Amino acid sequence: MPAETAPHERTWMAFPREGFTLGDEASEREEGYAVWTAVAQAIAEFEPVTMVVDPTEMTRARRMLGAEIEIVEAPIDEFWMRDMGPTFVVDDARPGTLAAVDWVFNGWGAPDWAEWQKSALIGRFVGELLGVEVVSSLLVNEGGGLHVDGTGTVLLTDTVQLDPRRNPFADKARVEAEMARTIGATDAIWLSRGLTRDYDDLGTNGHIDIVATFASPDRVLLHEQQNPDHPDYAVSRRLRGELEDAFAARGRDVTITGLPAPATLRDDTGIVDWSYVNHLVVNDGVIACGFGEDVADARAREILADAYPGRRVVTVDARPLFDRGGGIHCITQQQPAV
């Protein structure tokens, strides 16, 4: 699996459809449609975007997205493309060869509220649409549950891949063997957990893509909660220690750069998990999460611009996404150029 910083052919997304995730009120639904559209349009400034759209939403999608976004029709129920869609890989032995890993998707552990049976078919659908090899996996996993450096290292969390609601018979050795077979990962670094709110009913139980990511093989960006009144103050320090120990044990000199959390601690639901780590790297750019805090958003842009030199950082207000359980990285999936 190439690093996210490698050149992209396009980004894949899925358009929202009515249901639990989008919201019950008309205002909630309009907010959801608008933020998915805003992210797509921001990405389209840098690279092509293909949007999978449920048949019930085709008219709205065409109206809102405009001609610059390619639309593909397919039945979906959930619309977090990172998690339900394919994870793309390339074959070093056959240059120019692309494949799509099709994980088992069960709605983040088959919670009672999730509708996921239609979207569980999208990974294979996209691969077949592209005419590439589909690498089937029996591992229940989501794209938001892993991050790679492009040289064989993968970041994972104990509470996702070893979740008994996902993989009741898995252990680390089995997961690592499957990561090697599917995405070519030769070294797995396990973190013990994710952020606090991610363990609520609407959470993913610890996705890595809200916690830490590789900016390059020798630099990791880590969520950093700086307020001791937030439970992630302790969590982010614990995770920093785990990363430091893991890289030291491997003799790797990796810089761990903190991405400070916004100042807001709570919303109407409870403790927030607002994280600037959940950004998307695109061709010549970075699509960053914004949280309506000028100082914190600007500081995040500066750190991201330094971490990804030569790329323009664009901020999109991600609060409506986090209200629904994810962020910008969660609703997108890059297709590497081959």
Rank of each mutant, 00 (worst) to 15 (best):
M1E: 05
A3F: 12
E4F: 07
P7K: 10
E9Q: 15
T11V: 11
M13I: 10
M13G: 15
F15I: 15
R17Y: 02
E18D: 03
T21F: 13
D24P: 13
A26V: 13
S27M: 15
E28Y: 13
W36M: 11
V39P: 05
V39N: 03
A40H: 11
A44Q: 15
E47C: 12
V49M: 15
T50V: 14
T50F: 06
M51G: 12
V52K: 11
V52D: 05
P55N: 03
M58P: 03
T59M: 05
R60K: 15
M64C: 12
G66H: 10
E68P: 13
V72E: 11
E73C: 10
P75A: 08
F79I: 09
M81P: 12
R82S: 09
P86H: 13
D91H: 15
T97P: 04
A99V: 03
A100N: 14
V101K: 05
V101Q: 11
V104T: 04
V104L: 10
F105K: 12
F105P: 01
N106S: 04
G107I: 01
A110Q: 04
D112E: 15
W116C: 08
Q117S: 08
K118A: 04
F125I: 01
F125W: 08
G127Q: 01
G131L: 08
S136R: 14
S137W: 10
L138V: 02
E142A: 06
E142V: 11
G144M: 05
G145I: 08
G152W: 09
V154Q: 04
L155Q: 01
L156A: 04
L156F: 07
T157R: 07
T159E: 05
N167Q: 03
P168Q: 09
K172I: 07
A173M: 04
E176N: 05
A177C: 13
T182E: 01
A185Q: 02
G194M: 10
R197V: 02
H207L: 00
I208C: 05
V211D: 00
T213W: 12
A215L: 15
A215W: 11
P217C: 01
D218F: 14
R219D: 00
L222R: 09
H223I: 11
Q226W: 14
N227H: 04
N227I: 07
H230R: 12
S236R: 12
S236T: 14
R238N: 12
G241E: 08
D245W: 15
A246M: 15
A246N: 06
R250F: 06
D253S: 08
I256A: 00
P260K: 04
S275K: 13
V277S: 02
V277T: 05
H279R: 06
A288I: 07
A288V: 07
C289N: 09
C289E: 12
A296M: 01
D297L: 09
A305H: 07
Y308C: 02
Y308M: 01
R312A: 05
D317F: 07
P320V: 05
F322W: 08
D323C: 00
G327I: 10
Q333W: 02
